[in-house]
Amino acid sequence: MNDLIERYVCDVARRLPEKDREDVKKELRSNICDMLPEGAGDEEVKRVLYGLGSPASLAEQYRSKPRYLISPAYFDEYIRVLKWVLPLVGVVVMVIGFAVGAFDAAREGSTNYALVIGEILSKGFSMGVSAALQALIWTTAGFVIAEHTGAKHEKMGEHGWRVEDLPDARQEKKSIPLSEGIAELIVTVIFSILGLLFCAGRLPFAMVIFHNGLQFYQIFSESFLALCVPVILVTLVLAILMDIAKIRDRRWSPFVCTAVVVKSLVSMAMSLWLINRPNLFSEAFRGFLSDTGVLGMLPSVDGKSVLVIALSVLIIIGSVSECVTAVKKTVETATGKK
């Protein structure tokens, strides 16, 4: 009978913090013995142990506060982020996966279309699912870290919450929801990783085009791809800083505004510099373009293709409008409070 008691006691104790274990074991052993009549048999022991409940539930009672991976205070935000990050990342990467599958199939030159379609679908789904799982893991990790470093508790102040944090009923856009920062962070990280894989030649878009049957070229030049890597890394670091600022302040503060402006201006400058360099495309691809006459069809100004100019203009418009929006929201927030 002592064996059953000992097993029960140990099973409770192993769920408790190290320092409490020996004490709780000693206490429980003594308490259980007290509850048993003299010379009790196995049946009596079982009755008492069932009366105490499962080891897990008893250990839960011994723990002073309930434990959470993500506490109710964060859970709503967590679900809100997952609801749009997972489908977004999953679908985008799935589409990329379809393309990867298609290019792989094209490179192998297979004519068995059922097989090709099967491969394309399986590539897309497997990449989509694994990217969604990655997003799930990183989102969860982000929230768990926030939970345990107490990002929110610090903000709460002496009352547990702050009147200042209440969203503006008329103009909700002044505050930045926690979900926005975390979601942006995850999307940025995942797409930066895809970008880096692309530059490293691990994604096939870099090297495949169709031409009179199938030929494979590297579209971009080596030097361009090599320069892309630091640009992506710098943008990634700035974007992470910007998202941390958003997560920290949760409203359009001057700090957040500065982070957004710096990030968009620096990444704009770098992208412009990058695409306006002379050796954008690989020699093979340029050769293909001039062979097919595509190059001749596109007008160029001062030796620059219209495509590059149009893209530059788009980048400038995008970045400048991002900065203007940020400044406008910050000014609105600042003046609205006064």
Partner: peptide
């Protein structure tokens, strides 16, 4: 009151 409520409660009050 059940044993599985009382014993942990005693420990908590002691701590």
């Amino acid at each position: 009151i059940e044993a599985n409520t009382l014993y942990p409660l005693l420990r908590r009050l002691e701590s």
